[in-house]
Design a protein around this nucleic acid. Structure first.
Length: 551
RNA sequence: GCGUUUGUAGCUCAACGGAUAGAGCAUCUGACUACGGAUCAGAAGGUUGGGGGUUCGAGUCCCUCCAAGCGCACCA
């Protein structure tokens, strides 16, 4: 008996009361809130349905609650149920009914915690999308960790997810990058508006190694050579860093291709046909104010060059034409000013902003040294990269630390502190719990405790009730995390599971003390141990963190 | 000035509008010749930035003020 089971029981009872005329008819939701009360005296599970629905039924909450309680009391597996406070319904399950879940979890294995809320939905999740003018820095690393985890969470809800990286290989920043490489190759100082740093020298040298005469070509040709090959090299490094970080992109979309294929022109023509494009002062404008933007946006500048948004128009249209129901963009807070114009664009195409196009804004990562914020600058070469972070703490700790906080809050990273005090990262607490489940299972085998028996009525210790209840919440956590686009909820949940497991381990033995016989309770506890193992592993998997068997 | 995000324990942060606001780290006191002590038990720590409002109930929603981050281009 899980909270989800209780939810459907309650709805079933309400529907029955409606059809027999005891309660007036109105549409019931698909599920009701059933949660673990903070205070254990309130029972195993509690629901606020009576307070939620009483007004719609024209009743006072406590009367509706009493109606429900008398029905719930008849449900097998429910040991005790009563009304408390303003109308909460507190439910206590029998140990057997609650513990049954342990076996279900083990049998479900990797499937436990998945759902079907997004079944049949094609999602395009775009994240990182850092310019190929340098390595991925710490901010991009956060989106790599969070974005990939989010993709895994969507997939666990049945969605088909394409992870996509928009590669800005067109425009002024790339030109600056190319000129910076050329300057480095010539041994000159970086251009005023260019990039500096050791990686620029390395790439310039790599280009020279393959094209020894590149620097001595005429200016335009030389720049083009360094642009083409430099971008290619940088691109390769970025892909490798991401793969090493455990993040695999299905599509690397090149901005440049939108211009080469005429997709930009096509998108503008589409909008012009729809009446949302006009010409003024020699420029081409999108009338985005029609759809709530602050001002209209220039799409083609009066010098004939495309503005940045031109690529966005074509890119969004391309995604929709590739069949994605939802295009989700993850952007840093430094880009949140784009949201309105992007949403306006979406509406201009006749789509639904917030549905077909969704933009997640994540706060930036602060680099801290000795308690003082440090400004990261590609130009000054003070950038902390994805590789720096992984070198300092490893992939697991890095991904966990970056995914554990809400994207709405800023994260401080102090490399010196991370490389010293890695064990204050809660990832080890969770991983240790998982390793412990595996070692307990191994010990059980060697002491002839097997899984030939399962009698959940023996799981009566308070720590067992707590652990089972915690394990029962994984499906709801995963669904909520998906709905809220919040992977950090999974991390926080795992920390609670790990705590519940450690406390149970401390109080309840799977293997008997030496000299004592193996009993039913030991075999049954092995199931619970393995259920905890499954939950921890499933949770860590969606965070992209490994589940070690020993540490 | 306008927009946006944030403000919760000493620090880092949680908390679908629910009951006595929770974890980790740090501090203090305890627990192994018992399945891994990277653990566990306990203590201490709070006017959820201030003030109004909405309701059975507000850290959460609305208004306002304060403080901080980030944006406000025919740049990308």
């Amino acid at each position: 008996m899980t909270p989800a089971d209780l939810s459907s029981q309650i709805l079933h009872i309400l529907a029955a009361l409606q059809s027999e005329g005891t309660l007036p008819a109105f549409d019931l939701p698909k599920e009701v809130v059933v949660e673990r009360p903070k205070n254990r005296d309130h029972g195993d599970w509690a629901t606020n349905v009576a307070m939620q629905f009483a007004p719609k039924f024209g009743l006072v909450p406590r009367d509706l609650a009493n109606l429900l309680v008398s029905e719930l009391a008849k449900v097998s597996g429910i040991e005790k149920v009563d009304v408390a406070g303003p109308g909460f319904i507190n439910i206590t399950l029998s140990a057997a009914a609650a513990g049954e879940l342990a076996k279900q979890i083990v049998l479900a294995g990797e499937k436990y915690g998945t759902g079907s809320a997004l079944a049949g939905i094609k999602m395009n999740l775009e994240f990182v999308s850092a310019n190929p003018t340098g390595p991925i820095h710490i901010g991009g690393t956060r989106w790599a960790a969070v974005g990939d985890s989010l993709a895994r969470i969507f997939e666990a809800q049945g969605a088909s997810v394409t992870r996509e990286y928009y590669f800005n290989d067109h425009g002024a920043q790339i030109d600056r990058f190319a000129r910076s490489l050329l300057s480095a190759a010539k041994g000159e100082a970086a251009p005023e508006d260019g990039y500096a740093g050791e990686y620029i020298n390395q790439i310039a040298n790599s280009v020279l190694a393959n094209h020894p005469d590149a620097a001595s070509l005429p200016e335009a040709e030389a720049t083009e050579t360094f642009r083409a090959h430099g971008v290619e090299l940088m691109f390769g490094e970025i892909r490798k860093s991401l793969e090493d970080f455990g993040v695999h992109f299905d599509v690397f979309f090149h901005e440049n291709s939108l211009y080469e294929t005429g997709a930009v022109q096509k998108a503008i023509e589409r909008l012009r046909t729809l009446g949302h494009i006009y010409d003024l002062d020699g420029a081409v404008w999108l009338r985005s104010t029609t759809f709530g933007d602050d001002r209209d946006r220039v799409v083609i500048k009066s010098d004939g060059e495309a503005a940045y948004i031109a690529g966005d128009l074509a890119y969004y249209l391309d995604k929709r034409e590739r069949g994605f129901d939802r295009a989700i963009y993850m952007l840093g807070a430094d880009h949140h000013g784009y949201v309105q114009r992007m949403m306006a664009m979406c509406a201009a195409f006749g789509d639904q902003p917030g549905v077909n196009l969704e933009i997640l804004i994540g706060q930036l990562v602060n680099l801290v040294k000795d308690g003082e914020p440090v400004r990261m600058s590609k130009r000054a070469g003070t950038v902390v990269t994805m590789e720096d972070l992984v070198d300092a703490v490893g992939v697991d700790a890095a991904r966990y630390a970056l995914t554990r906080s809400s994207i709405n809050s800023m994260v401080d990273i102090d490399l010196d502190q991370l490389s010293k005090k890695t064990n204050d990262n809660p990832v080890f607490y969770v991983q240790y719990a998982h390793a412990r489940t595996k070692q307990v299972a191994n010990n059980a085998v060697s002491l002839s405790v097997d899984d030939s028996e399962f009698d959940p009525s023996l799981l009566t210790h308070p720590s067992e009730s707590d652990l089972i209840a915690k394990l029962a919440q994984l499906p709801a956590i995963m669904a909520h995390s998906s709905l809220e686009r919040s992977p950090h909820l999974v991390a926080r949940y795992l920390e609670e599971v790990a705590g519940a497991y450690h406390r149970w381990y401390d109080a309840c033995r799977v293997t008997p003390l030496s000299g004592k016989p193996v009993e039913s309770v030991h075999r049954t506890r092995l199931w619970l141990n393995n259920a905890a193992s499954v939950v921890l592993a499933n949770g860590l998997r969606v965070l992209g963190v490994s589940s070690p068997e020993r540490m």
